[in-house]
């Protein structure tokens, strides 16, 4: 935790709120698209800073190996590319879990489609 408060997450949160209430609502037609992009980028950053679900546990179960998420993701990619998961039914649910966790950060509304 940072000594100084509010931390990055707190700053992004209030920056986004202020941006939405003050700037976005007053943006001209020409500024609207960039303003919406800024709000989108800040909201992704805020969700990422709040912490995303860690897929490490699911990856450990699937691979039967130890390691952090980054290491296990790389091993899984290698195994898939080598065909070691061809025809296996236990992979797809883990891919969904990883994708849902990433979507929860990048665009949670998309999960409802």
């Amino acid at each position: 935790m940072s000594i100084d408060q509010p931390d990055a997450c707190g700053l992004v949160e209030i920056a986004l709120k202020t941006f939405r209430e003050v700037v976005l609502s007053a943006a001209s037609a020409e500024q609207r698209f960039p303003a919406l992009m800024i709000a989108n980028a800040l909201s992704i950053a805020e969700r990422e800073l709040k912490g995303a679900a860690d897929p490490a546990a699911a990856l450990r179960r699937l691979l039967g190996e130890e390691g952090d998420a980054d290491t296990l993701l790389r091993r899984l990619c290698e195994a898939i590319a080598e065909g070691r998961f061809d025809g296996r039914t236990d992979l797809r649910p883990v891919l969904w879990e990883i994708t849902r966790a990433r979507l929860a950060v990048s665009n949670p509304k998309y999960l409802q489609n």
Binding site: R92, S106, L111
Partner: peptide, 23 residues
């Protein structure tokens, strides 16, 4: 470019659609 940066973050949506299609 903010637009290019955000396009890079669209990957989970695209992969969601891929998985849905394969299912």
């Amino acid at each position: 470019s903010l637009e290019l940066a955000l396009t890079g973050r669209m990957l989970p949506e695209i992969e969601h659609d891929l998985l849905l299609h394969l299912d």
